[in-house]
Nucleic acid binder design. Structure first.
Length: 591
RNA sequence: CGGGAUGUUGCCUAGUGGCUAAGGCGCCUGCUUUGGGAGCAGGAGAUCGGAGGUUCAAGUCCUCUCAUCCCGACCA
């Protein structure tokens, strides 16, 4: 491809909207154009990167037995009603009616569509196991797209779906994906960590997320440097140390004027925060099987020194959505914000962290302004509907497995794998007959990787002050060939044109900067676009004996005789591929 | 959905109620130049996001609205 014909152009100045480096460089390099919030056009350079990423996805999926399909991008409501998600998912799903007034939606994922295909095709255990996948556009009306391609509304995703007769089969396919995902990310030149995660709207039993660690990430992962425990903060657990046991003492009401926070309270009473119980209120929408959802006030109690994990709470009460409760909603059940206590409230779902029953004589609210209760004991003074782990793990907490100090890090989720189990097969009637003639639901898994997000993550990982540095496996082209024009001498142009033809004949992917521009412009653009190899043909290089050869990111430059350039390019590309391939190794499975 | 910020030509910006909205980049024409975003000359390109209002006078002040970005909520 000649740069003079390329459908894009580079920018000298930083686009003011772009805040993160991957976004800036992809715009400046002429890879993408934004159309609206979370909506992008992908220009030829980006398209080629994504084609290569997709080719890797196809290869790794087919290696583990995947068969490619295409499903509609517009789906009828019926199948979503079958699974129940029509009612569970909110505004993130875009719905509309067709001309016949049928309810439809834009596919935000394809579990239902795939399960529908499977229930029509799979009849017998003899057909299983199966692995079906697709690479398609999905739409999620995210309330807040951000950071360029990291979080968008319309995106291309590789989704695969495994179908098995039993849990052992699922486990096998799940582990196959676990390994395939590491292969994919390593082939794309990006380091990832697999962490256990929340199953979110997918439902199901177990999930891993593949995390690329970066400051711009919006997920937090918790890792143990000692034993290797890693989890998304949404589900991470830490060791909770109970205080030394005490005999329950008599309940006592004390005057605590203006003490609305745990800090105020602990300071006023001169007690450690561990001796207090914190009450946090949420409104939870409990999902039903129909359009009716019940909104209920949830009162969560954790020890004063600990932080509530909202995901754990939402999962504990099986809520579709939770949001902080408003003051009047709290007051409606008889509680007093700032001085709230589970004692004597009505019509609220009380959920207590499992450390609370082991903690005696805590200070809690009195449900009366400016008063708290001292020596509150779970069981004696109040009861809860649920007792479970509600506490957020954080930096410095103790690992539950080995006791070492946990670390927290920011990350971007570039892939996920879910053990769905029978979540969709049961609700949608995707069943098969086993050897004994029994009818059983298919055991399913679902596995996703976002193509654009992966490209952005690679851009985030591989760049320097001058521009992008694409890993050879997904670079839009392999070679950036520069010709430096000379008004006195046609030879550099002729040699460069000739070299371009030769590179093409050898099926090498080359971007040829044939523009009538000054050298500086071409060098800057070459750095910005970030192809692995740069070749420069100029009067100077010819006088020095050939073509200047440099590898992006190394700073190294040397002159290679014209007749050896093709060989040198091939060898270098091979070496670069080898370096990436060296990272594709078996991974230990952790859950 | 809450909080904050910003909308001036394809991009980056100036313009602090007063003449024909200014500059740089990019683009077009010509000349010159050719190893790290050149120079000279000429040119095209804006109903200042939109609507309403205040005023003798609005890019500038007010109201509403739309859009985008950031933080939070949410989410893969």
């Amino acid at each position: 491809m000649r740069v003079s014909r390329l459908f894009s152009h580079t920018l000298k100045e930083l686009p003011s909207e772009a805040q993160v480096e991957s976004h800036r460089l992809l715009i400046r390099g002429g890879f993408i154009q934004q159309l609206a919030a979370g909506l992008f056009g992908y220009l030829p350079l980006a398209r080629r990167v994504m084609n290569k990423i997709e080719a890797i996805l196809h290869e790794e999926m087919q290696k583990i037995g995947g068969q490619e399909v295409t499903m509609p991008v517009i789906l009828p409501s019926d199948i979503w009603k079958d699974s129940g998600r029509w009612y569970q998912i909110g505004a993130e799903m875009s719905r509309f009616t067709d001309r016949k007034d049928h309810e439809m939606c834009l596919a935000m994922t394809h579990e239902e569509a795939l399960t529908d295909l499977a229930r029509k095709i799979v009849k017998s255990y003899k057909q299983l196991p199966l692995l079906v996948y697709h690479v398609q556009t999905k739409w999620r009306d995210d309330p807040r797209p951000r950071a360029g391609l990291i979080r968008v509304r319309e995106f291309t995703m590789k989704d695969s779906y495994s179908l098995d007769t039993d849990w052992e089969g699922l486990d096998k396919q799940y582990r196959a994906h676990y390994q395939a995902y590491f292969n994919i990310f390593h082939r794309c030149g990006i380091p990832v960590q697999a962490v256990t995660s929340d199953t979110g709207m997918m439902g199901g039993k177990l999930a891993h997320e593949f995390m690329y660690l970066t400051e711009i990430g919006e997920d937090t992962i918790i890792t143990c440097p000692s034993c290797g425990y890693t989890a998304n903060r949404q589900v991470a657990v830490s060791r909770k140390e109970p205080l030394p046991g005490e005999e329950p003492k008599a309940l006592e009401k004390v005057h605590t004027p203006g003490c609305k926070t745990i800090e105020d309270l602990a300071a006023f009473l001169s007690i450690p925060r561990e001796k207090t119980a914190k009450a946090v209120f949420f409104m939870a929408e409990i999902a039903g099987t129909s359009e009716e959802t019940e909104e209920k006030l949830v009162m969560a109690i954790v020890r004063g020194d600990m932080e509530l994990n909202e995901t754990k709470l939402a999962n504990a009460v099986k809520a579709k959505e939770i949001r902080p409760a408003r003051e009047e909603e709290i007051e409606a059940v008889g509680a007093v914000p700032g001085f709230a206590s589970p004692r004597g409230i009505k019509d609220a779902l009380v959920v207590v962290d499992d450390l609370i029953p082991e903690s005696s004589n805590l200070v809690a609210g009195a449900n009366e302004t400016d008063y708290h209760l001292v020596n509150v004991n779970y069981g004696r003074d109040y009861q809860a509907a649920l007792v479970t782990d509600l506490v957020a793990a954080g930096e410095g907490d103790r690992c539950t497995r080995c006791g070492a100090s946990l670390k927290a890090a920011k990350a971007v989720e570039v892939g996920n794998i879910f053990k769905l189990g029978t979540r969709y097969s049961e609700s949608m009637g995707c069943v098969f007959q086993d050897k004994d003639g029994d009818t059983k639901p298919v055991i399913m898994g679902s596995y996703g990787i976002g193509v654009g997000r992966l490209m952005a993550a690679v851009a985030e990982e591989h760049h320097d002050k001058d521009g992008l540095i694409w890993p050879v496996s997904i670079a839009p082209y392999q070679v950036y060939l520069i010709r430096i024009n000379d008004t006195q001498d046609d030879l550099p142009c002729e040699k460069a044109d000739g070299l371009y033809e030769e590179l093409l004949e050898q099926s090498l992917e080359v971007l040829y900067d044939d523009r009538d521009e000054r050298p500086g412009v071409k060098f800057k653009d070459a750095d910005l676009i970030g192809l692995p190899i740069r070749l420069t043909v100029s009067k100077r290089s010819l006088e020095a004996g050939g073509v200047e050869f440099s590898v992006r990111g190394t700073g190294e430059k040397r002159v290679v005789p014209l007749e050896k350039v093709l060989e040198e390019v091939k060898e270098t590309l091979f070496t670069l591929f080898q370096e990436l391939q060296a990272k594709v190794v078996p991974q230990e499975y952790r859950d």
